[in-house]
Every structure is written in C-alpha cells, then in structure tokens.
Design a protein around this nucleic acid. Structure first.
Length: 852
RNA sequence: GGACGAUUAGCUCAGUUGGUCAGAGUGCUACGUUGACAUCGUAGAGGUCACUGGUUCAAGUCCAGUAUCGUCCACCA
C-alpha cells in the first residue's frame, strides 16, 4: 500500500542504480530497429544548469519512449574538454593555490587538467543520475580520449591533404588574457562608451593636415598608410603624397581605396594592416607593410618607442596626452560603440596579425546548402524555421580559425623544420622537426561527435548501426557553433547527414524573463529543485511548459503545481490498490463491462493514439496537457467516482489496466514515480522501463456507452450548476420525468445520480415542493426541493438572456447567408444549426425563469 | 541596417492544415472535510486574441503595414 502522501525523496531513492545495474540503459539488441541520440557533451567546467536539465530531459523522454516502443534505443553519453573554458578554470584554481600556471611545464600542467576533468566528470555523472537519464554508460566518450583524438587527427590530415586546411597570417581575434586566438563566434560584442579621437596627420612639407578619427589611437604605431576614397573630391589631389605619422614622425603614403567611406566620419582612414581586418585587406591591395605593435599579452612592443612595455590602454591614455601636448589632437568625441569581448575571459579582444591554421569553409558550406535542398537527405529542423539559421551561416561563412594557443586540447598534428611543414599522424622520423605548440578549437572535435563517438574513422559495427543518428536535441543558441559544423563534417567525411531530425529548444529564463546568467546571479540549480520537488516534477515541468522552439520561464510555482499533479496520480493509485484486496486478475471481458468501464477504455484508447502522434512530433507540451486532463478529469474526477459505485472484478481489471497505461505513458516524463507505483500493481513486468508502450486497441471503441456516460456527466454537471447558483444546500430530489428522453438513463443509473448528486430520485414531485427545470441538450430534467432557496439573480439572468439573443441573431444571419451554406462543410453547418436550437431552448427556459 | 521570435484571462503560457477554439495551470470568489487525495472536491467570475487595413461565406489563425519587447547577425576607421 502507498503512503497517504507522495514523497519524492523516498520514491527516487535507489531506482537509478537498480536500472543501471540491470543494464536497462544499454543498447545493442540486434533483433530490434536501432534508434540513436548522442548527448550534446557538457563541458567539464562545472555543474549542469537548468538548461542542461531541460535539454537532457527532452532526450531522455524520446529515448525512453522509443525503448518502450520496441526500438534498440541508444543514448550515448559523453563530455567535452572545452578548451578555453576549462583551461581558464584550471589556471584560476592553480593561481588560488599560489601557483603561476605559466611557470609550469606543459606536461605538468596537463596532469592538473586531467585531475580537474576526472573530478568534474564525476559530478556531471552524479547529476545525470539524479535527473534519471537513461544513458548507455558502456559507450561513454570524452572529446580528448584516444579514439576521438585519432578521429581529430584523421580529419585534420585529410582536410590538409585536400587543401581545405591551410596555415596563414591573418587578422584574428586575440584574447590578451588567455593569450590565444579566438574564432569569431567566441567574441561577444557589447555596446560600450568609447571615444573617437580626432588626430592631425600633417601632409609632408605642408601646413595642410588630414583629420583622422580613430577609436584605438594606440594602433597608430602600426599605421602604414592613410586612405581616402579615390572619388572623394576633398582629398583626391592628395593621393600619392605622404603624411607624417604623429609622434613617430615617419612618412607614410596617402592612398586611394574604396574602403574609405566619404560619408563616414572625416572620410579619412588610417590603415593599420596588422591590427584591423579591413586594413589588412587594404594593405594587401596596396602592398603595405604589416607592423605588429603589441605583444601577445596586450602590452606595447619594441615598435612603439618609449611606449614599449605599457599596457595597451595605459598607452592609449599616455599617447592622447602627448598628442594634446603637441597640438595634434583636434577633439575627443564620445561615442557608444560595440566592443568585442572574449566569451571566456571577458577581455577586450584585440584584432591581431598572427600565423594561424584555417579551414577553408566555402566548399564545405556549399555542400550543406546543396543537401538541404533534398528532402530525403537534409537535416529536418523542428520547428522548421531554425533551418534558416543553418542556411544563413552557411551562406555568410568565412574561413574558420582553428588553432588556439592553449595547452588543453588536441595538439595540431603539424611539425616544422625551418620553412618546411609536415602534417601527419606521427612526428617525422628524422631529427629537427618541432611540433606546433598550438591545439585545435574545441568545436573542431565537437563537430565530429555524432560519428567519432561511434568509433569512426574505423568502420565499426556501432558506426554502421547507429549512424546517422535519429535526432539531435539542442538549444537554438548553439546552432552556429555546433550544429552547422556537425552537418558539414558529417557530409564531408561520412557522405551523409549526421542526424535525421534536429529538435531545437529555447533558453531558460528567470521569472522576470531575463536570461539566466552567472553575472546576474539568477541561475537556478536543478539539483536544488530536485531536492525540493523531485526529478519527476522538474522533468515534467521542463518538458511540458513551452511550445517547441520557444523560451521557457522558470517558475517555481509551476514545479510545485506539477508536484501536486504527481500527488494526485499517487492518490488515485492508492485508491486503486486499496480496492485490490479481493481482486482476481483476469483478462478484460468486454461483455461483462459496465458503461463507465467502456467509457474510460474508449477515452484512453483515443488518448493513446493522440499521445503517440504528438510524441512522434516531439510536441511534449501537448502530450503533457492531454495526459494531465485525462488523468485528473476523466480518470480521477469521473471514472474513479463511477467505480466506487460499481466495484466489480471487471472494474478492478479496468482500473489496473488503465492505471498501468497511464503510468507507461507518463514514464518517459516522470520515470521514478511511475516505476514505484507500477511495481506495486499486480502482474507487472520487471520494470516499467522495459515494458511495452500502450497501443491503440480496436476492441476498445465503444461509441454507444461513451454517449451514455457523456449524457450522465452532462446531467450531473448541469444539476450541480443550478444547485450551486440557487444555493440549494439541503437534500433535494431528482424527479424522474417519465415523458423525457432521459428517463431510461436516470432509471438505469439511479445509484450514480443519487451518490454523485447527493439526492434522492423519485417518480413524482410532491405537492409541497418547488421545482426547477434544468435544460439539457436533448430535453430537460426536473429537480424538486422543499423550503426556500436564494432568489435567482434577476440581473444575471437578464444579461444571459441578452447574450443569447445576440448569439441567436448572429447565428440566424449566418445560416441565412448563401455564401456560408454553399461553401462551408456540412458538419460545420449542422453544428451551427444544433447550437441555434440549443440556444433557442435555453432562451425559452430563461424566459420562464424570469416570469417565475 | 538585416533576420527571426513574442504580444491571447490578474500572472505564466497552449492554441497543428482558416470553421467544437477562445483554452490550461496558477491566482481570485462562494460552498463543501463520514475513507484515494484539503498538496482536495463542486461551482463561479475574467479576454474587442497589441493596433490598422486587406483576402474570405468565415480570421488569434492567412497577407500587408504600425507599435512595443526580446534574440541573433552585420557595421561601427
């Protein structure tokens, strides 16, 4: 027997370990059709947040559903080494302990990083367990493990051979704190206060000067030209002459280039090819020298004279003062502009000339765009609109900077000897080759995740069976970084999309609608929610409270409401079990069932069909609403009440059968409590996890009985309604009106009416009684009562009457409209007619009430 | 500047291809505790579906435009 109250802590205790030990999470039954999801690998940098809980819950729901529905369901777990993020954390930890990570040898530092990884990986696994995720740990992978590292090397070598990977000097986004290059996606732009410094660049041997405006004056040390638009009448005559570079007093040319926009600022641009991507291009067009003026840590280098060694911002300040002194500064114009920050260190990113490795994107991206045109080969986004993000990125794509000046990651498989480069799996045999110090961008390995985890590039059985994956689940914020890259790498190396469907969800926001973030401190720890309300409540809340692709506001009250729902389920189950003492389980015999038994079987049958349909479409909010309504309103409010009155052995069969199906349909959403209850019901399988998902059953369609019960429900509801409105609190009579359509129904179900309405049924009204006629769809019933009741609210009745008159007029007009009659489908027209009749009858009734 | 999303009951959100679609949860009001559940039951109140046009017999639903909020991208010498 169950306790009176649902206790999520007791219920969730120990179940996960049992499932795990029994091997239920493991895929590999070759007799079944495979179904695959690989988890988006969380970073080994910390705790899982609510977003992870949401993302993984959705996946667990899909995988548990498919497993119960007869698939060999593989959900492959794993984690991401998360290069910059993890390195930053490990460094911070070392510094806390008074160790400067830069003083360490690479090997020594890596030891610390691996220790960190082990610790955090364990935390993450513990959190997965608390969430109840049915992951196949026998196939768990890590982006830096041996197999995946080999896959990474293979991809690098192959792309290099094809000429799709090259090494070159480019302007990249440089993080002076982490001292590494960043990809464009790792730069976050924020609107900030800044200034335009207007500086005089005097024309050689002249009093004339050009007014140059810049936000980064300190870069002038790297200026190798000043550009004006060749069509700009103001400056045309100066092209080919030279200006004096302020402070440095060096001569640099004035060039004509389209890059200079006459409309913008002064129309004059200083050109710093080593510190600005546009200037780099201009420099290439005009064969300008590239002068790097900073060190990797953001201090000024030997090309800046007396400013050498200053931090870039200190230098800026000093330089501006000096310009002012020399009367070279015209003005400082305060502006708001967007400034790039490193996603991880938050340092202001410096565009910086540096030698890096790149992936040539155009051919890879074109392949994606091509495949997305073919409906059998494309990745199907759910909701569809997110495909646009993929396409957009593949259209605007630029070459991908993949080298990072870090230690934590896959070391680039390239060796140098003088000007020679060797790219391969192993170091060349001869002496003198030195391996590239850098590692690859984390996303370079994540991009291979759907197949590297299955053993690729080896032609493993796993790969053959589980690639392509069936669905990938992730947030829309990660489409550019990850989804895009998996798609082009999958197409490039496996010649096939990495996954058939891509289910996209939104972001979690706080109750005020703000993004959850560390800086706001508004993050919610899913583990705390689980402690308070249970994983089942959290999961159901996460999965059912938003439409696909929409953001989700975290609202504790809703989690609480979900807990209440589970408690309701718990108590309904408790009721069922209380009635099973003298129960003999048998097969359900249709011929022995009552109308209400058939009614609930029919209802459930329809729900099963609906739930399956929406499960397939990943519309979990709809599934949640359907199940909620079915359980609370149909099963608890009506069927259990009917069952109390007529508790036959067959009814017990039905109670158990329906409850088990309810539990099975809820199981993917709330695995723990459904298992707990299921185990306590007679003739259950070893675990609900491996039981069969409910199927629609053609034997359980009972339209006649459904009608009957629906009529009974209507009578009861409408009488309750009148009773409540008129405040008849004493016992009253339901008169069985012999002339009425409902006569037999009432006669046959006397006990139901008497119990649920707390009334007595009589055949004739007593002479000293008042009576009220209760209108129903196909007639009416009469209730009689002794004594007085509160007067009917005349004002309210009048309002209702007016509403009815308006509605009747509207409907009559509609039905008189030839266009409507000709065009609308028949069932709509009939429905309108029916409603019209109903309203007319109700109007008549109100008229009588008002008279009385 | 471009793209996308949101705008529906006090609050948080659902509303598939136009017609049982104006809904749910929560909150609020009234009544109700003799065995599944007061973390409950029964009943009730509430919304010109942001605004303006258009298409249609028929528009939260489709089209065009406007407003507000949010997100992403691009630009920013």
């Amino acid at each position: 027997m169950l306790d009176k109250k649902y206790n999520h802590i007791e219920v969730e205790q120990g179940k996960y370990e049992k499932w795990y030990k029994k091997g239920y999470f493991e895929a590999g039954d070759l007799s079944k059709k495979p179904f695959t999801i690989v988890i988006p690998p969380p970073n080994v940098t910390g705790k899982l947040h609510l977003g992870h809980a949401w993302d993984t819950t959705l996946q667990d729901i899909i995988i548990r559903y498919k497993r119960m529905d007869g698939y060999d369901a593989l959900w492959l777990p794993g984690m991401d080494h998360a290069g910059i993020a993890t390195q930053a954390k490990v460094d911070a930890k070392l510094r806390e302990n008074g160790i400067n990570p830069r003083d360490m040898k690479r090997e020594e530092w890596l030891k610390h990083a691996w220790e960190w990884k082990e610790e955090y990986a364990k935390n993450i696994r513990d959190q997965w367990a608390k969430l109840g995720l049915s992951l196949d740990y026998t196939k768990e992978r890590f982006t830096l493990d041996e197999g995946l590292s080999y896959a990474v090397k293979h991809v690098f070598v192959e792309l290099y051979k094809k000429g799709s990977i090259y090494r070159g000097e480019r302007i990249i986004n440089w993080d002076p704190v982490q001292m590494t290059a960043l990809s464009n996606e790792e730069v976050i732009y924020r609107e900030e206060k800044g200034a335009f410094y207007h500086i005089k660049y005097f024309v050689e041997n002249s009093d004339e000067y050009l007014e140059v405006a810049t936000t980064r004056p300190e870069t002038l040390f790297g200026d190798t030209a000043v550009a004006v638009n060749p069509n700009d009448e103001r400056y045309k005559h100066l092209i080919g002459k030279k200006v004096v570079l302020p402070i440095v007093n060096k001569l640099i040319p004035i060039i004509g280039d389209e890059h200079a926009d006459p409309e913008f600022g002064t129309g004059v641009v200083k050109i710093t090819p080593a510190h600005d991507p546009n200037d780099f291009e201009v420099g290439n067009r005009h064969n300008l020298k590239r002068v790097v003026i900073m060190n990797p840590d953001g201090t000024m280098n030997e090309n800046t004279g007396i400013y050498k060694g200053m931090d870039r911002f200190e230098c800026r300040q000093k330089l501006v003062e000096d310009l002012k002194k020399q009367n070279l500064l015209i003005k400082i114009e305060e502006i708001i502009h967007s400034v790039g920050h490193s996603e991880r260190s938050d340092a202001i990113v410096e565009p910086y000339l540096s030698k890096q490795w790149f992936v040539k994107m155009r051919p890879l991206a074109d392949r994606v765009l091509e495949v997305q045109k073919n409906k059998d080969q494309k990745v199907n986004f759910v909701p569809e609109r997110f495909e646009k993000i993929l396409k957009h990125w593949m259209e605007i794509t630029y070459d991908w900077c993949i080298s990072r000046q870090l230690w934590w990651g896959h070391r680039i498989p390239a060796w140098y000897k003088g000007d020679e480069i060797y790219v391969g799996y192993e170091a060349p045999k001869e002496d003198g080759w030195v391996q590239d110090e850098d590692v690859l961008d984390t996303w370079f390995s994540s991009a291979l995740w759907p197949f590297s985890t299955l053993g690729w590039p080896e032609k493993t059985n796993l790969l053959k069976r589980y690639y392509p994956n069936d669905v990938l689940v992730t947030g829309y914020d990660i489409i550019p970084f990850w989804v895009c890259r998996m798609v082009f790498q999958g197409l490039e190396f496996l010649d096939e999309r990495p996954f058939r469907d891509c289910l996209i969800h939104g972001l979690i926001r706080d109750k005020q609608g703000r993004k959850m973030s560390k800086s706001l401190g508004n993050g919610v720890d899913p583990m705390e929610v689980i402690d308070k309300y249970g994983a089942d409540a959290l999961r159901f809340f996460l999965a059912t409270n938003s439409a696909p692709g929409q953001d989700l506001r975290y609202d504790e009250d809703k989690v609480k409401a979900t807990w209440n729902f589970i408690n309701k389920l718990w108590n309904a189950s408790r009721f069922v079990m209380m009635n099973l003492e003298d129960y003999t389980p048998t097969k359900i015999k249709v011929e022995e069932l009552s109308s209400s038994d058939k009614w609930i079987l029919d209802k459930q049958n329809k729900i099963i069909k609906l739930v399956r349909k929406h499960m397939e479409q990943y519309e979990f909010n709809v599934v949640g609403a359907e199940l909620y309504h079915f359980i609370w309103n149909d099963f608890c409010d009506w069927y259990i009440e009917f069952a109390k009155i007529n508790m036959t052995n067959q009814t017990k069969n039905v109670l158990v059968y329906v409850l088990k199906n309810i539990l099975k349909m809820l199981h993917p959403f709330m695995p723990f409590v459904t298992e707990e209850i299921y185990q306590k019901l007679p003739n259950s399988d070893e675990s609900i996890m491996i039981s069969e998902y409910p199927k629609w059953n053609e034997e359980y369609e009972f339209s006649y009985d459904v009608n009957n019960i629906n009529n009974i429900i209507e009578i009861i509801t409408k009488i309750r309604n009148v009773k409540s409105e008129t405040n008849i609190s004493a016992k009253f009579l339901l008169v069985n009106n012999l002339d009425d359509n409902y006569q037999f129904l009432i006669n046959d179900n006397r006990e139901i009416f008497e119990k649920l309405l707390k009334c007595t049924i009589v055949d004739e009204i007593e002479s000293d009684m008042n009576k009220i006629d209760v209108p129903l769809t196909y007639g009416s019933v009469i209730i009689g009562y002794k004594g007085i009741h509160e007067k009917l609210d005349i004002e309210k009745l009048k309002q209702e009457k007016q509403k009815l008159i308006d509605s009747i007029n509207r409907r009559e007009k509609l039905l008189a409209n030839q266009g409507f009659i000709n065009n609308a489908p028949e069932h709509i027209i009939n429905e309108e007619k029916r409603k019209l009749e109903e309203e007319k009858s109700a109007l008549k009734n109100i008229g009588e009430k008002l008279k009385g």
